[in-house]
Structure formats: structure tokens, C-alpha cells
Simulated assay, not measured.
Amino acid sequence: MCTMDEHKGHDTGSAAAERMKKQNHQKFNQIIQERAEEIQELRQAVDYLKHSPQAAVEDSERIFSELREGALR
């Protein structure tokens, strides 16, 4: 019907094909979003691992200092 009236110059396709394209597009967007979230989680894990050794050293130094101060009293 559209091809005969006001849209006769437009490219047309079947509704099923267009629906399939839209579903695929939505699926790809969902996959992209999931991957972006996974990347963010990995970045957070890397940041934690980078700072974890330094935090352990600082905690050990603090505990050692507290123990030493307690022994000197």
C-alpha cells in the first residue's frame, strides 16, 4: 500500500526483515552494554590489586608502630 501512494519513492522491505534487524540491533546494544560493564568491573579489580599491596604495607607499618609503642611503655 505504501509503495503505491505517498511513499512510492522509498526503499521498502518486509516487516519481518525490519523486525529482525531491530531485534539484532537491540541484541548487539545489549551485548555492548554488558561488555562495557565487564570492562568497568575489570578496571576496578585492577585498581584494587594495584593498591592492595601498598595498603598491606601501610597496615603492617602501623601495626608494628603500635606494637613498638606499647612495648616501650
Rank of each mutant, 00 (worst) to 15 (best):
Q30K: 04
K21L: 15
E38F: 01
N24M: 13
Q40C: 08
E34D: 15
I31H: 11
K50A: 14
E69A: 08
Q23I: 11
R35V: 06
K27H: 15
E61C: 09
K50C: 06
Q54K: 08
E58M: 08
A16R: 10
Q40R: 14
G13C: 09
Q44C: 10
E18Y: 12
L49N: 04
E38I: 11
E61Y: 15
K50W: 08
R43E: 07
R35H: 06
I32R: 08
D47K: 09
S60F: 07
I39L: 07
Q44E: 13
A16E: 06
R35M: 00
H10R: 12
H10M: 08
I39F: 02
E58P: 00
I39A: 01
I32Y: 10
D47R: 02
R68T: 06
A17G: 03
P53N: 02
L49I: 08
Q40I: 00
R68V: 05
K27P: 00
T3D: 11
Q33H: 11
R35W: 09
D5C: 09
S52M: 14
A71T: 01
Q33N: 06
H25F: 10
R73M: 01
L67V: 12
L72R: 10
K27D: 07
G9W: 14
F28A: 14
R43L: 05
Y48K: 00
T3S: 15
H10C: 03
H51W: 11
S52D: 11
H10K: 02
T3N: 12
A55W: 05
A15V: 06
Q44Y: 07
E37A: 03
D11I: 09
A45L: 04
D5R: 07
E37D: 02
G70H: 12
K21H: 05
L42S: 11
S60N: 11
E18F: 03
G13D: 06
H25T: 03
A36Y: 02
H7F: 09
A45K: 00
R43D: 10
Q33Y: 05
Q23V: 03
N29Q: 06
